[in-house]
Computed example of a mutant assay.
Amino acid sequence: MKKRWIADISLLAVTFVWGATFVVVQNAISFLEPLSFNAVRFSLAGVFLLLWLAIFHRSLFRHYTWPLIRSGIWMGLWLFSGYAFQTIGLLYTTSSKAGFITGLSVVLVPLFSFLFLKQRPSLNAGIGAVIAAVGLYLLTIGDGKMVPNRGDVFVFFCAVSFAMHIIVTGKYSSRYSTLLLTMTQIFAVAVMCAIFAFLFEDATQMWNIAVLRKQEVWSALLITSLFATTAAFLIQTNFQKYTTAARVALIFAMEPVFAALTAYIWAGERLTASGVIGCIGILGGMILAELPLTWILGKWWRTKRHFTS
């Protein structure tokens, strides 16, 4: 029981860091363009993870194969597109809205699993997707306009990419070393971001000391590369085995909530009434999609018996 609580608290801390990164990244990309920022972020994260493997898991390097590298690059492609769309979207939308829209990846996974893997989604996953879709509409149309802004559209494609990343990760993670796959995809993301930064941005800013020394930039790079990527992955790998999948899903569903709270505290962002209702709908849909229907019915039945006995 003690290990379960330690695991839950550790995973909740990881979720808080993920939620808080929306604000710090939004501040940083005011000085360092999105693709350039991600190129530096994932390069640092890859180096941190490489050092970790070299010190504590050196024997794993013997298991590096070309199929593993190809799988890691394919996973990295979807991870790259997810973070690219998310970071670009933060140029045009708020951190709180981006957090909740990104969370839609949870309810998109069952839909994509049905389309691409022919795996029929559960009833609660379908209901959760509908509730989350209504919530997305209320959140993105909360400013009174009849169409979402372009930042919301970018972040929605980010959610699509993250959902596809979850699917391909599930396909390859059982075949190869998780640590090696993670390091491979992280370096793949860094290379892809660097290439596109040279094509579409002023990539020279990536090694501009004046830019990197800005507090908004170096603090965001430190938080996202060391804590939100390397440390978060190592914590998740170490502690997730001590808790249940349903509890992990509930904990990770708190990410957009933390994104909204940190945006409220640090950036002074406010949501409209319909935006708040939309956020509640997305969060509720995410939780409903992840919890087994038998667990939900069991909780309802025990509560009913408690009040009727």
Results as ranks from 00 to 15, higher is better:
Lys2Ile: 10
Ala7Tyr: 01
Ser10Arg: 05
Phe16Met: 15
Gly19Lys: 04
Ala20Trp: 01
Ala20Phe: 13
Thr21Ile: 09
Phe22Thr: 05
Ala28Gln: 02
Pro34Gly: 04
Gly46Gln: 02
Val47Gln: 03
Ser59His: 10
Ser59Arg: 11
Ser59Cys: 00
Phe61Thr: 06
Thr65Leu: 10
Trp66Gly: 05
Trp66Ser: 12
Leu77Glu: 02
Gly82Glu: 03
Thr87Gln: 03
Gly89Thr: 06
Ser95Pro: 09
Lys97Ile: 13
Thr102Ala: 06
Phe112Val: 09
Phe112Gly: 06
Ser122Cys: 02
Ile127Ala: 14
Ile127Gln: 06
Ala129Gln: 08
Leu138Glu: 10
Leu139Asn: 08
Gly142Cys: 09
Asp143Asn: 15
Met146Phe: 14
Pro148His: 10
Asn149Glu: 14
Asn149Gly: 15
Gly151Asn: 11
Val153Leu: 15
His165Val: 07
Val168Asn: 02
Thr169Ile: 07
Tyr172Cys: 03
Ser173Pro: 00
Tyr176Thr: 07
Ser177Ile: 05
Leu180Cys: 09
Leu180Tyr: 03
Met183Arg: 07
Phe187Thr: 09
Val189Ala: 14
Ile195Asp: 05
Phe196Ser: 12
Leu199Asp: 07
Ala203His: 07
Gln205Val: 07
Gln205His: 11
Val211Ser: 00
Leu212Met: 10
Arg213Val: 10
Gln215His: 09
Ala220Met: 01
Ala220Ser: 11
Leu221Ala: 04
Ala231Gln: 01
Phe233Pro: 03
Gln236Trp: 00
Thr237Tyr: 08
Asn238Leu: 10
Phe239Glu: 02
Val248Glu: 01
Ile251Thr: 09
Ala253Asn: 11
Met254Arg: 04
Ala259Met: 09
Ala260Phe: 06
Leu261Thr: 10
Gly268Pro: 01
Val276Phe: 12
Gly278Gln: 12
Ile296Ser: 06
Trp301Val: 14
Lys304Asn: 11
Phe307Arg: 13
